[in-house]
Amino acid sequence: MWKEIALKRYPIRSKTGIPSQQLIEKFRPYLYVVPALAFFTLFFFYPIAYMVYLSFYDWSLLDLSAMEWVGLENFQALFTDNDFYQVLSNTFIFTVFTVALGMGIAFFLALWLNQRAKIYGVVQAAIFTPHIISLVSIAMLWMWLMDPQYGLLNAILEWFGLPAYSWLADTKSALASLVLVSVWKVVGYNTLVFIAGLQSIPKYLYEAAALDRSPAWKTLWKITIPMLSPTLFFLLIINTISSFQVFDTIYVMTQGGPVNSTNMLVFYIYEQGMDFYNGGIASAASVVEKVEVLLSCFDSFCNSDFYWMFQSGGS
């Protein structure tokens, strides 16, 4: 009330007739978000918009002055290219298996390791180690492990009297081998996040369930998993995005081969842009990749089982 009286007594008016004080009040919230907005615009929105813009041109890194507007031709070229369909299918298969196995194995490991004893701490540390090693080093290590002649995996197979396997050199097993490496890397991190989630579930819920005669599988299904849904949701999003963007292991281990069997979206974009100098195609493929990532995240967000828990914060 005092503020109104003060404003009435000393009316400060701008040329438009709106009191300048009111004008400031109106725009004050927007002013506060300007720095953050400017940062995001410059480093996030602008590059994405520029990428979409570039996807409508035929251009090459060799000569940026010779950009030519081609409309949707880049997309047309992509979707009439059988290799691209294989790339999409490889990416999809890789993502589904990496996410499912990476989260599934981690979930059961976390259930097993969520106990108070020193040995479990040691195991936790051991399985987390791959996460802190660079992906390139991991790729090198697994190339040796999977070497058809000197590799440890074949040595083990041989020890059991099984025939040697070509691993990365065989079109049937190369993609599965990459899935294996990615799962190996991601399991430790996922396990740790799951353990943190499990430890935040109050113990009394399990006690109430025990008094309610709930069998172990039902306690897992009705209490543990719903209570873990924010964690599951978080890992699902993080794992899906990182699987869609796999690059290092392909670059080091297979270069997309043999016969395109391990070529995936980001490596395809790199090949098109850097090796074949098809900037337009690379940009168009990047747009497709972004749309796919967005769609898969959107799908997870809309999945009500996870969504309600995320919304209510588990309380």
Binding site: P202, Y204, L205, E207, A208, A209, A210, L211, D212, R213, S214, K222, I223, P226, M227, M309, S312, G314, S315
Partner: peptide, 19 residues
């Protein structure tokens, strides 16, 4: 086991299943 003792318990914080 607790479930087979034919008893019921009311906890201090109620221990209702939030989901």
């Amino acid at each position: 086991p607790p479930g087979k003792r034919d008893l019921a318990m009311v906890f201090q914080n109620y221990a209702l299943y939030p989901t």
